[in-house]
Design a protein around this nucleic acid. Structure first.
Length: 864
RNA sequence: GCCCGCGUGGUGGAAUUGGUAGACACAGGGGACUUAAAAUCCCUAGGCGAACGCCGUGCCGGUUCGAGUCCGGCCGCGGGCACCA
């Protein structure tokens, strides 16, 4: 008997799809469309299992929707700009462009054998001048629409390498290459005005019904709408030009518990003091040695510097509070100054204890309210508390009520103003790097900042650059910078900043609808294909990428590049989990960990030396931990269908999946079994004289003891369950149902025609997951045309109906017995049967039940 | 530190969304076939107990006739924190 041989089957069917043009996305007015998109990959050079999982999920949806009659758009491209290309050029020589395009070629070659139903004719890379030229055109439109501006912002500066560092390049406050302490530095940078859309981006989240709640919640918190009080503390003998400190607070109700004023080291007052006081300058310099990330600020040890200045409390002229410069206060949020209320904020409390500042309780818990010790009392704002220092509300009130009353009181007494603020900051898009989309503007001495003329786009990156020196090669390029002013023609300088790579990925979904249009989008195409019906990607993009894309869709709509309906570009979002693997580790002579590839380990020992390895629990596959499995070698040994099947089985798509060699082996065995079952049916047909002879055999179903009917019932139940699984992103349950049906089919004694039909339908149900094997079985059993073009099977409702159900009988909530009854048996009939049940009679011991709960078709509970 | 998730047998997980916990599979044990092995097929299988049983979904508590599912607190792990993509 022949064997299941994916290495022979898979290329054959891929060629057949190619020849048929099965996956070309065609715009057919009048036919419903479906746009499936997986977040496009960064071309690192090797695909990994995470890609296999991500793209397989998208492929299941794409193939399924196609079978359901939709015109499907399922494209692929490359998020090709970014730091790794420059790092590679610095570390190994070569050019970012060559490195990137080489990687794209490699990854495409690794991806094609997966048999994904992708329309490869739409492929592009964000580093293609054709793509980024259109991005530049849009940037100019955004600029003219007032959506872009310049302002100063802080960056991480490496004083040795003389270069700007990304947050991930700052390790424990030091530059990753130079090891030098990082400084904060101000640069003039380009910004998108995303904050103008804060309210709109927040409110529109409610309309995203098919987005995970957790993602919407994360975005809500990120946008961070708050209602608070903006007020001033009068400064006592402040330096020249400073008579007050403006603060913004969301807890004005705790004003009577104020203990100190904290200002950012970048606050104008701190800057002024810095000029005259060396101690202040030293402290601020120390603060500025921290990185710029919020995480670093928040986790660093809280430090303050007492400026010696005092402010007056607005409610009491005689009450003076000290002014501290504190390292954890952000100049970017609010006013860059806070008042500290230690009793009701843990950070303020830690600070107060450290510097011996007073801690005043303004409210306590209703019951057993004790004064604050080492833990601040921070109940939910909706909880009622007892106020010790209320100044405009009842003794017992919630935080919310108190805040409202405090704002009203302060406004009436001229102490401050109630304001709404957003945490969301404008999107800084400037990068001082080479490998990104050049910002298409020119700096002219006479005209200022002038956008490049659209006919001169793309402003292309020069190829002749070197990476032997740190910093941006565009800055030191001999000729590229020099140009003529687009307005007056005088000699001028090009902008050398390039765009954040998030810009590239904020509109690629729109570009896929017309990847080679001479404008950023083609409205007729966008009108047909938008929105993305199903977007699939990692949860790590829950905030930035998705929020930026939502902003871009709005900006593109305002500038005429997208239709109104694409304001929210992604109708449905699914966030898939990671692929994890155990980590194998030994230690070097200094006790430092040394990691080993799974392929070098066998039976807990290194293959080469026999040295035992420590097994570290599973984590996301990463090169540095070497817990990676190469999809290419998996495909070589088992075939793409096995890799796909395994990635879909067992773990729910939104959760992490652990790659195990045993699991892959099991998936392969199962596909072999399915193939053999089909082969067996073929052999029976051949020995019995061909398919035609069996066409009418199913009619005799009643004569075979019900086997044929049983098989058909199981089949239609499977059609129903598998379809539901795919529709609801429960691919693992679809796979489990297919396993179960395989067991039924393998044992079935049904008529041959019924078994043939069952095998063919099973192949159809498997086709979105294991498309090559499905085509092979379909062809073996005499199916017409490609299974990829066959319509999705429909479950016959008549075969799904079950006339009897088994009702579990619980006694006091524990299952004690069961009852087989007609499905629609009335409640009182069920009750009679329950009371006649042996176990119930025994438990009642002659008494009557306290309560009898009958949930029709589900369960019975007898309470005694 | 802040925001958001997740936690079920030896393992991955299922559970009609408040209704029989452990579907389906992996690993294990037993058997068939084979000179033998591989491959394949069949049976078994949460823990404890000899059995009618008792315990059991990270931990503690609550709501309910009934909780893996809802609520409160804790522990552990993961994602994000604005220049990684």
């Amino acid at each position: 008997m022949a064997r299941y041989d994916p290495s022979e089957i898979e290329p054959r069917w891929q060629a057949a799809w190619e020849a048929d043009g099965t996956f070309a996305a065609t715009r057919e007015e009048g036919r419903p469309k479906y746009y499936v998109l997986e977040m496009f990959p960064y071309p690192s050079g090797r695909i990994h299992m995470g890609h296999v999982r991500n793209y397989t999920m998208g492929d299941v949806v794409a193939r399924y929707k196609s079978s359901c009659g939709f015109s499907v758009l399922h494209p692929m491209g490359w998020d090709a700009f970014g730091m790794p290309a420059e790092n590679a050029a610095m570390e190994r020589g070569g050019h970012p462009r060559d490195w990137t395009y080489g990687n794209i070629a490699d990854m495409r070659a690794q991806m094609k054998p997966l048999g994904l139903s992708i329309d490869w004719s739409r492929e592009f890379a964000t580093c293609d001048p054709e793509y980024y030229g259109q991005q530049q055109a849009m940037f100019i439109d955004f600029l003219e629409a007032g959506l872009v501006y310049r302002k100063n912002a802080t960056v991480n500066w490496d004083p040795v390498d003389m270069t700007v560092l990304a947050n991930e390049q700052v390790i424990e406050g030091k530059g990753w290459r130079s090891g030098a302490p990082v400084e904060r530095r101000e640069l003039t940078q380009w910004f998108f005005k995303i904050s103008d859309f804060a309210e709109e981006l927040l409110e529109a989240l409610d309309g995203l019904e098919n987005w995970p709640e957790k993602v919407k919640l994360m975005q809500r918190n990120w946008i961070g709408k708050s209602r608070g009080l903006q007020m001033a503390f009068g400064l006592v003998d402040g330096p020249e030009g400073f008579d007050r400190v403006e603060v913004y607070t969301t807890r004005p109700d705790t004003l009577m518990g104020a203990s100190f004023i904290g200002i950012s080291p970048d606050h104008p007052l701190a800057r002024a003091l810095e000029r005259d006081t060396p101690e202040v300058a030293a402290f601020c310099a120390e603060c500025r040695r921290m990185g710029t990330s919020e995480e670093e600020l928040e986790t660093a040890e809280k430090k303050g510097f007492d400026t010696g200045l005092k402010v007056r409390h607005p409610f009491d002229e005689a009450w003076e509070l000290p002014v501290y410069i504190a390292n954890f206060i952000l100049m970017d949020y609010g006013t860059g100054a806070i008042f500290g209320c230690p009793a009701h904020d843990q950070r303020d409390l830690d600070f107060a204890r450290k510097y011996g500042l007073p801690v005043t309780d303004t409210f306590v818990a209703l019951e057993g309210g004790a004064p604050v010790g080492d833990v601040a009392f921070v109940p939910p704002k909706t909880e009622k508390v007892r106020w010790l220092k209320a100044f405009a509300w009842d003794e017992v009130a919630t935080g919310e009520e108190a805040v409202d009353a405090a704002i009203r009181f302060c406004e009436e007494n001229g102490v401050g103003q109630g304001v709404t603020k957003f945490r969301l900051r404008d999107w800084g898009l400037s990068r001082q790097r080479y490998w990104g989309c050049p910002i298409p503007v020119v700096h002219c001495d006479a005209c200022g900042v002038v956008p490049e003329k659209k006919e001169n786009l793309p402003v292309e990156l020069p190829y002749d650059v070197s990476f032997d020196k740190p910093g941006n090669p565009l800055d030191r390029h001999p000729t590229w910078r020099d140009c003529a002013c687009p307005k007056c023609g005088a000699p001028a300088k090009r902008e050398t900043d390039t765009m954040d790579t998030f810009v590239d990925s904020s509109w690629y979904f729109a570009r896929f609808t017309a990847p080679h249009a001479a404008t950023p989008t083609d409205m007729a195409e966008a009108e047909y294909w938008m929105n993305v019906d199903q977007y699939i990607g990692g949860i790590e993009h829950a905030i930035l990428h998705l929020l930026y894309s939502r902003f871009f869709a709005r900006a593109m709509q305002i500038t005429g590049h997208l239709p109104e309906k694409a304001r929210e570009p992604f109708d449905a979002l699914f966030t898939q989990g990671m692929v994890t693997h155990e980590i194998y580790m030994t230690r070097d002579d200094k006790g430092r960990p040394v990691y080993h590839l799974p392929e070098d380990v066998e039976g807990g020992k290194l293959k080469a030396t026999g040295e035992p390895v420590e097994i570290v629990p599973s984590a996301k596959m990463s090169k540095s931990k070497k817990n990676v499995v190469d999809p290419v070698s998996i495909i070589e040994s088992y075939g793409a269908d096995t890799a796909r099947w395994f990635m879909l089985s067992d773990s729910p798509p939104e959760r992490d999946v652990e790659w195990t060699a045993a699991g892959a082996e099991a998936a392969f065995k199962h596909l072999g079994r399915v193939w053999r079952i089909a082969q067996g049916i073929v052999e029976e047909m051949e020995s019995g004289g061909g398919i035609a002879a069996y066409e009418s055999e199913g009619e005799g179903a009643a004569t075979d003891g019900g086997d044929t009917l049983d098989l058909r019932r199981a089949l239609h139940r499977t059609i129903h369950d598998v379809t539901m699984g795919i529709e609801s992103f429960g691919f693992n349950t679809s796979v489990a149902k297919l396993y179960a049906f395989t067991n039924v089919l393998a044992k079935s004694k049904a008529a041959l025609a019924a078994r043939r039909e069952a095998a063919m339908v099973m192949a159809q149900l498997m086709a979105p997951m294991t498309p090559h094997l499905a085509e092979e079985i379909w062809a073996m059993l005499g199916g017409e045309g490609l299974i990829a073009n066959a319509p999705w099977p429909k479950a016959d409702p008549a075969l799904l109906v079950e006339d009897t159900v088994t009702l579990p009988i619980q006694i006091n909530g524990k299952r004690r017995s069961e009852l087989k009854v007609a499905k629609d048996l009335p409640k009182d009939e069920v009750e009679k049967l329950v009371l006649a049940d042996d176990a119930v009679i025994k438990a009642l011991a002659g008494g009557a039940p306290k309560k009898l709960i009958v949930v029709p078709g589900r369960i019975v509970n007898v309470v005694i």
